[in-house]
Simulated scan of single mutants.
Amino acid sequence: MNTLVIGGAGYIGSHCVRQLELAGHTPVVLDNLVFGHRKAVAPHIKFYDGNLGDAALLKEIFEKEKIDLVMHFAAYAYVGESVTDPLKYYDNNFAKVVTLLQAMKDSGVSKFVFSSTCATYGVPEKLPITEDLSQSPINPYGQTKLDVETMLKDCARAHGLSFAAFRYFNAAGAAEDGTIGEAHDPETHLIPLVIDAATGRRGPITIFGTDYPTPDGTCLRDYVHVDDLSRAHIAVFEKLDTPGTALFYNLGTGTPQSVNEVISAVEEVTGLTVPKVIGERRAGDPPALYADSTKAREELGWEIKYTDIRGIVETAWKWHKNHPEGYNS
């Protein structure tokens, strides 16, 4: 299947491009390289440097590359920034998706896979989080993702769009061979931050609160390997043949890890000591967030390869050792 991967030079998108090829599909990448990295995409992959809000470019790609399906990984995803600059997020994460969906409709491209987020649930009513829980985002980032989900449902009813929206928990890890991985600027994800602290590339890691109602007092989160995420996105393709199909799936391991457990895993894998300091709780940090991914397993046959935090950290460590300066190494 000829698949346009928007944001395909970013962290999750670049891993999905690799998994698409392994599954026998033909990926085409569109990325404006604001956060993506050209080196994350193999030279033989067709690459367009451009913006998903460029309707003329989208029309050209759809026709020239004979696109069958679109995958979207191009959202801005810094929660704090979404609070201080909400218009930036509504423009990129929502308004430009309107342009994308209109271009798809005009070109007769009717299959769409959307990278959503567990942030659409806000503070969940119960744990683990299932797809039928109410969605009440507590920041503009989560709200823009929920707004796109709503728009997709409307387009499915009105235009026969077939789509799947995947609500991730904490994407983590890197490719097994250590050639592509996580390189954000600024970096906000815990595992690379802890690795950087261990190697001395940054100062001590701050543990924000040790008095939560969890086994060791630190927050619990659900870390799922980026390749496992990617395989789920591809497994849904065969479910999208019927016009108007609307699917929603949580993607996580269902087994949360605490901040202290992540730090311990990094120390075990690297053989290094992680310097750390204890800070105050951060406003808006729930004690625990983790997924019930039963629906994805049962309907898509999705199997998680990386079932424990150590395996995830091992792949991240291999990437960081090979690329201490990220894609500038």
Rank of each mutant, 00 (worst) to 15 (best):
G244V: 00
V266R: 02
S107P: 07
S264T: 10
E298D: 13
S110I: 02
A316V: 06
V123Q: 12
H225G: 03
E149Q: 09
P204D: 05
M71K: 02
L133Q: 14
P140H: 09
V28G: 12
M1I: 08
Y290E: 00
A23S: 12
E303L: 01
C16V: 14
G53S: 09
A197V: 13
S136I: 15
I207D: 05
A23V: 04
V113A: 13
I12P: 12
I67A: 06
D147P: 01
L4G: 05
D49H: 15
Q257P: 00
P186N: 15
C155Q: 14
Q143I: 07
G160I: 12
R202M: 15
Y212L: 15
S107W: 07
P286G: 10
V34H: 08
G50L: 12
G181H: 06
A165G: 02
L101I: 08
H37A: 06
T120C: 06
L272T: 01
A75Q: 10
D177Y: 07
E298G: 05
A103P: 03
R38N: 03
N250I: 11
A283T: 14
L100I: 11
A172Q: 06
A42R: 12
L87M: 12
T210K: 14
W317V: 12
L289T: 11
A23K: 06
L33V: 11
P243H: 12
G24D: 11
H225V: 02
L193P: 02
G10Y: 08
S264I: 01
L193T: 13
L152E: 10
S293M: 09
C155G: 08
K145N: 13
H25E: 09
L220T: 00
I205F: 15
D222W: 03
K239V: 12
L161P: 00
V41M: 07
R201D: 14
F35D: 10
T144V: 06
V274P: 00
C118G: 01
